[in-house]
Design a protein around this nucleic acid. Sequence first.
DNA 1: TTGAGCATACGCGACGTCTCGTCTAGAGAC
DNA 2: GTCTCTAGACGAGACGTCGCGTATGCTCAA
Lengths: 194, 194
Amino acid sequence: MNEQASGHRTGPVRSAAARDAILAATARLFQGQGYDHLTIEGIAKEAGVGKQTIYRWWPSRGALIAECLTDGRLIPIDFDVPYTGDLLRDVEEWLGSVLAILETPHGAMLLRSLVSAAAEDAEVGDHLSASLGVDRHLAERLAAGILDGQLAADAPVELLGHAVLGTIIVQSLTRRPDVAGALRELVRYLVTAR
Amino acid sequence: MNEQASGHRTGPVRSAAARDAILAATARLFQGQGYDHLTIEGIAKEAGVGKQTIYRWWPSRGALIAECLTDGRLIPIDFDVPYTGDLLRDVEEWLGSVLAILETPHGAMLLRSLVSAAAEDAEVGDHLSASLGVDRHLAERLAAGILDGQLAADAPVELLGHAVLGTIIVQSLTRRPDVAGALRELVRYLVTAR
DNA sequence: TTGAGCATACGCGACGTCTCGTCTAGAGAC
DNA sequence: GTCTCTAGACGAGACGTCGCGTATGCTCAA
């Protein structure tokens, strides 16, 4: 009777191999061709998997991308911000690692694709911001900077994090050259106690 | 006389009525249903126009949106920034009119759609930024603020404009509530001489 | 024996190209 | 001036292709 309410189920269990093949294929195709041009059928073929196996576990392309993000399959997860006591230097360190991704051959295209995905799927936006550590690490580092007297006491740290991320996005959407230089200048300005 | 070099062409000239019907239909459908769900066939039907007439003049959906933007058919063109001498107040005035659009029922969806369009078509990004007056008016008002001693002399005004726009986008992509409040706080912080 | 997984067929909607037939406006002959 | 002639814009819609999301077998491991 009712091998009960919760756990017990008979029959095969979800295949980790299939899940992995699907996410790996998604990441590979996404990086190769961008969000548009990314098709479920393409993923299924690339992963050697039936379409239904994808539809069974993910409701949308966006969800697939979101899971790739949290798995660190598109960009490294959880960019850290060091704490040396020097706020500007620490933030520039973080910025450097983010820009390192962005400036790879496919980096800019990758970001635009992620933005595109985020626009149609809220989950992706959150996971993108989380992946880069904007809220968790950057904002917290800024907060610590306030305690150290290196940043104005009323600085809205979380918003500043979003402003930096947002600037990266805007520069990237408008295809500016030298995103890196601009971002460094912005951060220098924002993070300098005045 | 000047039936000259290039100009010589016989036959009917481009129909202004068709152009207008197409752009109007595009704007109408875009605002009603967003960028995804916007189809060329739908536009053609809505405008009472052949598909080919669209393909003849515009290479992509994005180009269509870009032109709607420059025509002010999606959001008002060229948000102005007043000059009263009080920098913070003037910028908040500008911000207010931008947020007024953004906070209409479809405003948030509209912005996300524009971002999505910008991600796949560089033109749209530029025109969006231009429409909101970020570079032309906001940045220049900030520059004037420097002259008035209300903003640090080394403030990167253009970047600050992008930062504000970027923050709007990030807040909107992650579906934050109270975008308006957050933005006002950010602007208050950025534009306060310290 | 149940349910995950692969494979495939299906109807649908949109794509972008192409070809009709219609019309319009400038060019050249008279 | 008037009258063809012709290039090209236009509406309409057929065409083949692609990807969608669903449905249906069949196999195989728990």
